[in-house]
Design a binder for these strands. Sequence first.
DNA 1: TAGATTGTTAATCGATTAACAATC
DNA 2: TAGATTGTTAATCGATTAACAATC
Lengths: 213, 213
Amino acid sequence: MLNSKHGSISRATVDRLPLYFRTLRLIRSEGSEIVSSEELGRRIGVTPEQIRKDLASFGAFGKKGVGYHVAELVNNISQILGLDRKWNIAIIGVGHLGWALANYRNFASLGFHLAALFDQNPAIVGQLINGVDVLSVADLETTITSRNIQIGVIAVPAGEAQAVADRLVAAGVHGIWNFAPVRIRVPDDVQIVSEDLSVGLSTLSYHLRRQVP
Amino acid sequence: MLNSKHGSISRATVDRLPLYFRTLRLIRSEGSEIVSSEELGRRIGVTPEQIRKDLASFGAFGKKGVGYHVAELVNNISQILGLDRKWNIAIIGVGHLGWALANYRNFASLGFHLAALFDQNPAIVGQLINGVDVLSVADLETTITSRNIQIGVIAVPAGEAQAVADRLVAAGVHGIWNFAPVRIRVPDDVQIVSEDLSVGLSTLSYHLRRQVP
DNA sequence: TAGATTGTTAATCGATTAACAATC
DNA sequence: TAGATTGTTAATCGATTAACAATC
């Protein structure tokens, strides 16, 4: 049983799991079979106690006095995160960012399959990007269904994002990964994660503000 | 005096300020002169109490019984975030992502000026992107100095990221915005903000895991 | 004045850190 | 066995929420 033992998992814990996963796969590729929370923590920049606590909320994966078996833990976290299956994703909006995302190879290694690309611009529709042809947004609903797409990636301008989200939801998408700098509202049973690039750069500016002339 | 009143500001507060800033500029462009924490909160998806508390840690910007003067608050937050000045940034690595970032127009409206682009690949060096020519990474140090670059954006593969960061720091950069999926170590007086795209997608997968067949 | 809304203090909630018994 | 390291409980820390006096 890989679900939580008691009640729900903290958001902070879930956010750290992908970091553990990525680093453990790297450690596995280096040939190590065992890793301690101490060493894993040093590489990620998280305390060993934090790692042990996070992992313990899903089960007892380690061996006392020994550490964690790397390959085993990779498998366990993979299952916890739902990365042991294939997800079909569609990107809506093939501008600069959508194009970059469409070409991002790391996603495939996590089990995300780029199943469709959509754009409004007739000059872009029909192009082949990373082996996937760009469709007209008019075909959104039928394609979501026919290609069994579970996740929609919104890479359109802010003003169009909510309308695109509404169509994605109506078409049966279960999750949305939003890159438009606006708040998107979706029903409770649809998951949404937003990336806001201006936040990171602005907080950097905040911290630099005092120290840089 | 726009600094904190007592001691340091919570990280969570600083992370929300860019959202307030963005939304307030939008409200200003719509013509509203006054906004309440109630309405601002509704648009952003944050409680009014949270907004008042966040703002109050920098000063008393509102009028009791009235609300906040939009244009005034925009100016105040702009100063708090250090967005009332120009920052020169350089992007290192003009792959898919670096190229997309180089073309991202939103940054300019926040006061970030794309001052240089660097790549290793001779086929890319010399190209003009968004009005900026791509230089060889061999020219990194001299250009950082001559163009007065304060912020470096790392968009190179994970394996090269730390080396690039070290060179940026040695060249005198004060802040790093890192897109490579690795932990980057920098001296204490250098600020670093990392964006990790695989985290968002993986947490989406986590939440979808149970509900999607 | 009466109604509205801020700024701030107190109460609650949640997450991290510390400590240590269990055990490989 | 002795040393190492986990899993878990308790203590601390920090952030959010609630409540309300101040005041426009």
